[in-house]
């Protein structure tokens, strides 16, 4: 799971997956708001899930974007069918 997420984020950030660690933030990778929207779209498409996310209120969607590892855990919860903190 984490490797697949890592691959997706690396692709959008134009990096090699081997350069990425779970502790890294999306900002560190230079992903701007459009890049973030693309990452989320790619995650939704690869895992067949719907990620609650509003670019106007990224912190209010309950989907943790604070690091690559956090994203992986949030996706895992969605794949398992567990609800996020709130629906966007």
């Amino acid at each position: 799971m984490q490797d697949r997420i890592l691959d997706i984020i690396a692709r959008e950030a134009l990096r090699d997956p081997s350069e990425l660690t779970p502790e890294m933030t999306l900002e560190e990778l230079g992903l701007d708001s459009l890049g973030l929207v693309e990452v989320i779209f790619a995650i939704e498409e690869s895992f067949g899930i719907s990620v609650p996310f509003n670019a106007n209120a990224p912190d209010a969607s309950g989907f943790d974007l604070s690091s690559i590892g956090a994203v992986a855990r949030a996706v895992e919860r969605l794949v398992m069918g567990q609800p996020t903190a709130q629906v966007a």
């Binding site: 929207v37 989320i40 779209f41 509003n54 670019a55 106007n56």
Partner: peptide, 8 residues
């Protein structure tokens, strides 16, 4: 919707 800029 794809752009994620609309209010629900």
């Amino acid at each position: 919707e794809g752009l994620r800029v609309m209010s629900p």
